[in-house]
Design a protein around this nucleic acid. Structure first.
Lengths: 140, 140
DNA sequence: TGGGACTTTATAGTTGACTAGAGAGTTTAA
DNA sequence: TTAAACTCTCTAGTCAACTATAAAGTCCCA
């Protein structure tokens, strides 16, 4: 009676804002799966939308599609012990933590950079040459 | 008498751990400058080493070489008012801040993900199927 | 029944940040 | 002095993550 909604590739594209071509590309990498209709069309379950959103989110944070696959493929194969997934997750969390620390340090650098310059130039004059970079070498 | 040390490209490569080809590439993008000797060789000042280190640092944090150029080119041309550089820096700082916030949120997601699973699986059995991804859809 | 919107595969092109190699000239240390 | 090591330019290739296009088939609705 109640047949689970089957989405066509264009529907998933619209709901996620991800291009049709990109979805096919994800499939080619094993990040996203679909069933094929008799017409050869791909049909997706509504969860596929979440899957794609997850991919985009991870990606926005600097994870590669391969990284994402490390987690998702494991799920799709459905045959890997939980401990493995858990350690993958733990790795990602630690990577993220390290990256956050680096970013905060770099941000502090940039702020110091900006503020030191502000001190020595309380009121920039038109035509000023900017001594910013050479006088406060960053990241040395 | 005292001539400032002139480094050859290979010296800079060794001191920074960046490949010779990459240094030439940076130059082609205007991120790094050198003087040419009569032999056609590039010669670098010791500050070039800091410049390259800065590039690598920014890059490691997800800034593109174009981003880096936004800051550095301004310096190399030496003719742009400070306020412009200041606003560039301010932009980068804010970008960084936003990214840090996102990363922290995502990290929290992953941790929740990991911990919820731990609750429901206090002692994973060998052969367990991992219900991690489907049961706790992330980033939905 | 038609036609526009959608789908398929396959191939090729794009961007960023390089690396690799050819072919030629230069420097340097034994 | 000569050979290894280094440098030059130029062209081509690589990898990731796509996008674009062609040629063909399918769906849907007025």
């Amino acid at each position: 009676m109640v047949v689970a909604t089957r989405l066509k590739i264009g529907d998933v594209a619209k709901q996620t804002g991800v291009a049709v071509g990109a979805l096919r590309y994800y499939e080619s990498l094993g990040l996203l799966s679909s069933e094929r209709g008799d017409n050869g069309y791909r049909y997706y379950s509504p969860e596929a939308v979440h899957q794609v959103q997850f991919i985009k989110k991870a990606q926005a944070l600097g994870f590669s599609l391969e990284d994402v696959g490390d987690v998702l493929n494991v799920h799709q194969r459905g045959d890997v012990p939980c401990e493995f997934v858990r350690s993958l997750l733990q790795d990602k969390i630690q990577q993220l933590e390290a990256q956050i620390q680096q970013m905060m340090a770099f941000k502090a650098d940039l702020e110091q950079y900006r503020d030191r310059w502000a001190e020595s130039h309380p009121r920039p004059q038109p035509g000023d040459i900017c001594p910013l970079i050479e006088t406060v070498p960053l990241g040395a």
